[in-house]
Amino acid sequence: MNKPFILVVEDDKPIRNLITTTLETQGYKYHTAETGEASIIEAVSRQPDLIILDLGLPDMDGVDIIKKVRTWSTIPIIVVSARSEDRDKIEALDAGADDYLTKPFSVEELLARLRVSLRRIRYDNEKLPKEASSFINGHLKIDYAAGCVWLDEEEIHLTPSEYKLLCLLAKNVGKVLTHNYILHEIWGIYPYDVSALRVFMATLRKKIEQKSSQPKYIQTHIGIGYRMLQVSEDN
């Protein structure tokens, strides 16, 4: 299998060199851009498999780049930024970023986030066409046509809201979904009531997680949102 092609958008030379050296060591193909304008041109012309994006570019805010890319592509975007406030993370994720990594970061964490996003690409490209009417993740199965959910071959009963919540997470497996995004997609709530979401998430987890202290399927990003983890059947 060919290694994915990655576009690195970063104007800070030492950090750009760290990222590209890491990618090169792992055998990934890549190209770089140092400005927002150049990044959009490269994204359109080269059609990369994934974008690693800094938000603080000299000519354009990274959030605006995310919004532009999202008008024509669902390519995974991993933000790597010095902005560490929750509101900055939420703004980028709500704009369409798939993940958010705060500087300074470890090479190991960058590679882990990269693998998560690339697994989602493989899932979208390989599994969904074959299983358009269902979702299988480890021992969890959703039959969209029947509106049923199974865990370890045993059907579990969910409320309508729990079912919609689980389906939304499943259809975005590997991607961080913000509280606001989830509430808007499922209930169309405004102003957003995060406390209500937490209640539904807690009841859903009790039904699908064997150990609430060690979640296997749904990962919490404190102050930001949730992510459906992709797991293997034997893990």
Rank of each mutant, 00 (worst) to 15 (best):
S161L: 12
S134P: 05
G96Q: 04
V44G: 11
Q214N: 15
H184L: 08
L128Q: 12
H139W: 08
W150N: 07
A43C: 13
Q214T: 14
K68E: 14
V44D: 14
C148S: 15
L166K: 00
I6D: 06
I52V: 13
I41S: 13
Y123Q: 04
L93Q: 07
Q26S: 13
D143H: 10
P14C: 03
C167A: 09
K89F: 04
L229P: 03
W72A: 13
R70Q: 08
N2G: 13
L177S: 07
E154T: 14
G147R: 02
G223A: 10
Q210R: 14
K175L: 12
I186T: 03
D88R: 01
S134Q: 11
G56D: 14
G223Y: 06
I208W: 00
I41V: 14
K171L: 08
L197K: 01
Y144K: 06
I156S: 05
E37Y: 11
R120K: 12
E131P: 09
R113Q: 07
L204K: 00
N2Q: 15
V149T: 06
E233W: 09
G56H: 09
L93C: 08
S73H: 03
T35E: 07
K89P: 02
T21D: 15
H139P: 10
Q214M: 13
E34H: 12
M60P: 06
A202K: 15
V107L: 07
V8N: 05
L53V: 01
K207I: 09
W187F: 12
Y163I: 06
A146T: 08
L101T: 04
D54Y: 02
A95T: 08
L197R: 01
D124C: 11
Y100C: 02
E153L: 10
T25K: 14
L101N: 06
H31W: 12
E10N: 02
T71S: 14
H157F: 15
Y30K: 07
T74F: 13
E85I: 06
K127Q: 15
S161Y: 09
L110K: 01
V149M: 04
R46Y: 10
G174Q: 05
A43S: 11
V194R: 12
G62V: 01
V79I: 13
N180Y: 03
A196G: 13
G27A: 06
H184E: 12
K89C: 06
D88K: 05
P160L: 01
Y181T: 14
D59Y: 09
Y192E: 12
A38Y: 04
T74S: 15
D193N: 13
E108T: 10
